[in-house]
């Protein structure tokens, strides 16, 4: 088991290195940050001075190596644009992103799985058919459209939910600004969380339904029913437990995406999370922020993947020995 975990961790590290290299390589072609940093009217000499200050006159491999050696020590450098440490910029945005992702995930899990069970239990009812069609819409509606529709309905037509920002926040531990503990904060959270969680809710719904239908057709369910167990116990105790494995995998894999790449949702609702930082940094060719950000998100996703793998191994001993 230990070797299995160690091997998975090592693979994760290799993935991180590859991601960092690709990210760094692509940023060379994102535009020249020196042009804005030296100002519109700067002479060529002044631009070159700024370039050498930022070490941008060095060849690619030297830039990359100094970036990596600093990054390993947790130093991601200074943002070109706001001229403060990158790590601070990103950390500042994380609470907003994590709270949004958690709320979206909660919504997706609770609603998605409940609907999945319901539809699997009563596949031919009219309500089930209605939900099935609805889930197709949920999977295929683009995020920005869900967001705009919600704003149209709740901010403009009935004007009960605010369209932007996070509202009143509570400061936890001196640095974590949380919207979970005020009514205003929760009101601001509803629409972004629904928008971000919509796709995943529909996806979890369909996966749960599929897995449940498969399990419900299995022999041991028929045996359980034949024993005279109530359909409730069969459904939740026997079928659901066995159907949840693919669902949990899905939740684990997608959660990282919700934290790191909620860009569209964040920009529609002006949510001050990490995704909107990524977007502004791209516009401004702020390489240090972009590179650190991509690596951070990759690290989160890799970490969650490793966790999922490990939990598989715990659940199913066969996997460990492969």
């Amino acid at each position: 088991m230990k070797t299995y975990i160690a091997r998975r961790m090592l693979q994760g590290l290799i993935v991180l290195f590859i991601v960092s290299f690709i990210a760094f390589f692509i940023f060379q072609y994102l535009g020249d940050p020196v042009l804005t940093l030296a100002g519109r009217y700067a002479t060529v000499e002044q631009r070159e001075e700024v370039r050498s200050l930022l070490n941008l006159d060095q060849p690619f491999y030297i830039q990359y190596f100094s970036f990596i050696s600093n990054a390993v020590r947790g130093n991601f450098g200074m943002s070109y644009v706001s001229r403060v440490p990158v790590a601070r910029l990103i950390i500042e945005r994380l609470p907003a992103s994590i709270e949004l992702a958690v709320a979206a995930e909660l919504f997706a899990v609770v609603v998605g799985i409940s609907l999945g069970i319901f539809v699997a239990a009563k596949p031919s009812s009219l309500t089930s058919k209605f939900f099935m069609t609805g889930s197709l819409i949920g999977v295929s509606l683009p995020t920005f459209m869900v967001g705009i529709l919600l704003i149209l309905l709740f901010s403009i037509t009935i004007n009960i939910l605010p369209p932007t920002g996070r509202g009143n926040l509570v400061n936890l531990f001196g640095r974590w600004r949380s919207g979970f503990f005020t009514l205003d904060g929760l009101k601001h959270l509803i629409m972004p969380a629904l928008t971000l969680g919509m796709f995943q809710m529909a996806l979890l719904f369909r996966i749960t339904r599929g897995a449940m239908l498969e399990v419900l057709g299995a022999d041991f369910i028929r045996t359980a029913r034949a024993k005279g167990l109530s359909s409730r116990i069969v459904l939740y105790k026997h079928a659901l437990r066995n159907a949840l494995i693919p669902v949990i995998t899905m939740i684990g894999l997608q959660f990282g995406q919700l934290i790191g790449f909620a860009i569209v949702t964040e920009s529609i609702f002006q949510w001050p999370g990490a995704g909107s930082l990524l977007l502004t940094s791209m516009y401004e060719s702020d390489f240090p922020v972009l590179a650190a950000y991509i690596i951070m998100v990759a690290a989160i996703i890799v970490f969650l993947n490793v966790l999922v793998d490990i939990s598989y191994a715990l659940l199913n001993p066969k996997i460990r020995y492969k």
């Binding site: 705009i148 403009i156 369209p163 932007t164 920002g165 920009s267 529609i268 002006q270 909107s276 977007l279």
Partner: peptide, 18 residues
């Protein structure tokens, strides 16, 4: 100051009176 980069949200905010 409230920076709102998304044009549609900006408009929703002013027409709702925020």
């Amino acid at each position: 100051y409230r920076p709102i980069s998304e044009a549609s949200t900006r408009l929703a905010s002013i027409s709702g009176g925020t």
